[in-house]
């Protein structure tokens, strides 16, 4: 290796190091705090790492139902992802491939729907859920989450549909496929990376949603993770150790999943960004 090469390598790692320092330092602090006792957390200018490692915060977090909440969040996030993709893939195909009047209006209104503050919508949506007898049940969340997952998913998926040349579809139709058959057999397989990327996007947004979760769910056994974090904020004090333990549990496992799916995801997001 030449000196120039070594220098180049070195500077590359230096940049990575700087970037990592910004993102990782708070995370290490979080994990380290999660292993400190309350006495250690409340030590003025205490050491970065615990002097005595304790699992107390994890005990508290799991005794409060963190495991159950993890499961609840997974159920809600997976269901929302499936339902949104199902709805969005069809609509997105329609707004990408079929000429009809009002198409632009639909695309724009999808963006506009994202501008409305939740506080305006929440009481009317709550009343709808009450009428449907869905309060304090997961479907109320899944349905409410569609308000923000579908529009974004339609937009993301649209760029994938646009990247599939229409010739491929037309060729299939010349071979005797109906428009519908061509869609199922030819187009869908081509946008699988797009579905994966959009799906992960929806999953992640649902995973951290707070407002609907705390409004609709009232039985602690049904809480999702963000609603569960609230349990550690008491009227007279916040249990920071337990919050950090919960935060560690709710962010590390999904990231591992992310690591495993990364390659596919990144090629997926490339198209979602509008690259044709």
């Amino acid at each position: 290796m030449s000196v120039a090469m070594v220098l180049k390598r070195g500077s590359q790692y230096l940049w990575v190091l700087l970037l990592m320092a910004f993102f990782v330092t708070p995370l290490i602090w979080m994990v380290s705090t999660s292993f400190k006792s309350a006495g250690q957390i409340y030590t003025a200018n205490g050491p970065f790492f615990p002097t005595h490692w304790t699992l107390q915060n994890y005990h508290v977090a799991f005794a409060t139902g963190l495991g159950r909440m993890f499961l609840n969040s997974t159920i809600v996030a997976v269901s929302t992802t499936v339902v949104s993709l199902l709805f969005a893939v069809l609509s997105s195909y329609a707004v990408s491939r079929i000429m009809f009047r009002g198409r632009r209006m639909i695309l724009v209104s999808m963006i506009l729907s994202q501008l409305i503050p939740l506080s305006v919508l929440i009481v009317p949506i709550y009343q709808i859920m009450a009428q449907l007898n869905l309060l304090d049940q997961f479907p109320s969340l899944v349905i409410a989450y569609l308000t923000f997952s579908i529009p974004v998913a339609v937009w993301f998926l649209r760029s994938f549909f646009l990247s599939v040349p229409a010739e491929i579809e037309e060729a299939a139709r010349v071979d005797g496929c109906s428009l519908f058959q061509a869609f199922i057999r030819v187009v869908i397989p081509l946008i699988v990376p797009g579905l994966a990327a959009t799906g992960i996007y929806v999953f992640v947004t649902v995973w951290q949603e707070l407002m609907f979760a705390i409004t609709f769910l009232t039985t602690p056994g049904k809480y999702t993770l963000p609603a569960g974090v609230i349990l550690f904020i008491g009227q007279h004090g916040t249990n920071f150790g337990a919050v950090m333990a919960a935060a560690t549990v709710m962010s590390i496992p999904p990231s591992i999943l992310f690591l495993l799916m990364q390659k596919r995801l990144i090629s997926g997001f490339a198209s979602a960004g509008g690259i044709k």
Partner: peptide, 12 residues
């Protein structure tokens, strides 16, 4: 869409 909804409802 009703199927997964019904499933989660059931589990609740």
């Amino acid at each position: 869409a009703a199927v997964p909804l019904a499933l989660v409802a059931g589990s609740a």
